[in-house]
Amino acid sequence: MIDETDRQIIRLLQGEIPLIPCPYAALAEKAGLSEAEFLDRLRRLKERGCLRRIGAVLQHRRAGFMANALCVWEVPAARVDAVGEAVSKEPTVSHCYDRETAPGWPYNFYAMLHAATRDECESIAARLSAENNLAAPRMFYSVREWKKASMKYYPGESQ
């Protein structure tokens, strides 16, 4: 399904996209492909669901999003898909998952919220809870970022 050329393209795209008029041509050259072939491969990786998107992620604190809360709720299995779809529509939510629980930890529904202040996070969480008929979530704020990196897929293979 994913061949060696795709893997090489994935490795190349794990770095930065150059801020030049023809960025794909420059990356294609590194991969030893024509620009057309490189773009064609990217479109196919996207169609197959391997590539989510090409674009930027901002340095969120630099951009003024100082309060970042991991919110966890208990959502019954029968309702979790509906709640998941509703909460995903909230633009300030970046990540939303149904997860396994653990002993003494009944929470299965997770959403990561980003706002300028903790008060703003609290009011978004309260609104999401009310809209979805849920009890208030437990909220855990980031106090220090120890690591934030993009995954390096297929390390150590011919690069």
Partner: peptide, 28 residues
Amino acid sequence: LLERLRALSGAGYLRRFGAFFQSEALGY
């Protein structure tokens, strides 16, 4: 646009400008 992007990148606004993959689809 490219000029502004380079300036914003230099000023630390961009964490990363690249491709984002679906890890499960890549076997992780």
